[in-house]
Amino acid sequence: MIAICRLILMTVTLWLLAATAARADNCVATMTDVDFGVVSPIAGSDVTASGTLTVTCYWTVGTNPLLLPAANVCVNLGVGPGGGTGAPRYLLNGSNRMAFNLYTDSSYTAAKIWGSTASTIGARPINGTLVGLLGLGGVTQSFTVYGKIPAASLVGVATVGNADTLYGASFAGHGTVQYGFGSVPCTGGASAAFSFQARATAVNNCLISTSNLAFASGSPITDQRISAPLSVACTANSTYQIALNGGVSNNPGARTMKNSVTGETLGYRISSTPDGAAWGDGTASTTVYSGTGTGSAQNVMMYGIVPRQRAPTPGDYRDTVTVLLMF
């Protein structure tokens, strides 16, 4: 009978030890991904996104003497995989980088960059005090994290070929939550790691604006020359082509301007270099202009000439040419 009592006592003691170990005081953090979605490197505007940081702290029920225990937490974020100081951080695609940063509020100021207690750039961790009810065993608090890609940092961001290109950064190993209970500060307690990703997709995009080729008044018995630019902005590293249709003549190799009163025409030519091959759509022995984007506006010159020819009736001669940008 004595042996049986000893066996029962040993069993209860082991159960109590296991229960105590499983309910240790601790905090954990999780973070949703920060997804900027599709971004155009030539849009000229900031791109913003947000994520949610969630911190949960647990208390040992039955051993904590406080009815309303508190945990002091500091959530730290390192520089990330792009290197540098963290101001800025980088999204990566191979050796290509896209600058961005994460902030503790929507002011997006340098003083609000999400950093760590060990930061050297003035950035700060996300701090908080979580107060819970002991009987519940834990408490959860969420924080919004704000991300921004500045417009200036998008200039020069390249795509791979002409395809939409994913840029990303994994913060696995770069995020930690430090915590201390009661009067213990966050830096004086334990820590736990968490991870998330930030990403954006750079799209192949182009913008174009045109100007008129306006020849001066004069006689067509002598050559008349003029030039004017097309302004083209395309995503860096992407290729593009510019074609010009045939206008009123429907023939880019034999362009004409027309007098709307008399119906008479006046021949002229457009090229992408002075006295170069006729610029058109690739038909009628014409060429198509080809270029590569830089992320900034590029001037592509149009050179116009009205060659010497039989003089038609004096008047106003015009043509309308459609510009086609292919990318």
Score class of each variant (00 low, 15 high):
residue 120 T to I: 15
residue 122 G to W: 07
residue 124 R to Y: 10
residue 126 I to Q: 08
residue 126 I to G: 00
residue 127 N to W: 00
residue 127 N to Y: 03
residue 127 N to V: 00
residue 128 G to W: 02
residue 129 T to W: 07
residue 130 L to S: 06
residue 130 L to G: 05
residue 131 V to E: 10
residue 134 L to K: 12
residue 135 G to S: 15
residue 135 G to Y: 12
residue 136 L to Q: 12
residue 137 G to A: 07
residue 137 G to C: 01
residue 137 G to Y: 08
residue 137 G to F: 06
residue 138 G to H: 12
residue 140 T to K: 14
residue 140 T to F: 00
residue 141 Q to P: 07
residue 143 F to W: 12
residue 143 F to E: 06
residue 145 V to G: 03
residue 145 V to S: 06
residue 146 Y to V: 01
residue 146 Y to A: 07
residue 147 G to F: 02
residue 147 G to K: 03
residue 148 K to S: 09
residue 148 K to N: 08
residue 149 I to E: 03
residue 149 I to L: 09
residue 149 I to W: 02
residue 151 A to N: 13
residue 152 A to E: 15
residue 153 S to W: 05
residue 154 L to F: 06
residue 155 V to I: 15
residue 159 T to L: 01
residue 160 V to I: 10
residue 162 N to C: 08
residue 164 D to C: 11
residue 164 D to S: 15
residue 166 L to R: 14
residue 166 L to G: 06
residue 168 G to N: 15
residue 169 A to Y: 03
residue 172 A to R: 14
residue 173 G to L: 08
residue 174 H to D: 15
residue 175 G to M: 05
residue 175 G to C: 08
residue 177 V to Q: 03
residue 177 V to S: 04
residue 178 Q to H: 15
residue 180 G to N: 01
residue 180 G to E: 06
residue 181 F to L: 08
residue 182 G to I: 06
residue 182 G to P: 07
residue 183 S to L: 05
residue 183 S to P: 02
residue 183 S to G: 06
residue 184 V to C: 02
residue 187 T to R: 11
residue 187 T to G: 15
residue 187 T to W: 11
residue 188 G to E: 02
residue 189 G to A: 02
residue 190 A to Q: 14
residue 191 S to A: 14
residue 191 S to D: 14
residue 192 A to Y: 01
residue 192 A to E: 10
residue 193 A to Q: 08
residue 194 F to A: 00
residue 196 F to G: 09
residue 199 R to Q: 14
residue 203 V to G: 11
residue 203 V to H: 10
residue 203 V to P: 00
residue 204 N to Q: 14
residue 206 C to L: 13
residue 209 S to R: 05
residue 212 N to F: 01
residue 215 F to N: 07
residue 215 F to I: 12
residue 216 A to E: 08
residue 216 A to N: 10
residue 216 A to V: 14
residue 219 S to V: 04
residue 220 P to L: 01
residue 221 I to Q: 13
residue 222 T to R: 13
residue 222 T to Q: 13
residue 223 D to I: 07
residue 225 R to V: 13
residue 227 S to N: 04
residue 227 S to A: 07
residue 228 A to I: 02
residue 229 P to W: 00
residue 230 L to T: 04
residue 230 L to I: 12
residue 230 L to A: 00
residue 231 S to L: 06
residue 231 S to R: 10
residue 231 S to E: 10
residue 232 V to G: 02
residue 232 V to S: 06
residue 233 A to R: 12
residue 233 A to T: 15
residue 234 C to T: 09
residue 235 T to A: 11
residue 236 A to Q: 02
residue 237 N to G: 06
residue 239 T to H: 04
residue 239 T to P: 00
residue 240 Y to P: 01
residue 240 Y to W: 03
residue 240 Y to K: 06
residue 242 I to N: 02
residue 242 I to G: 00
residue 244 L to N: 04
residue 244 L to S: 04
residue 249 S to E: 03
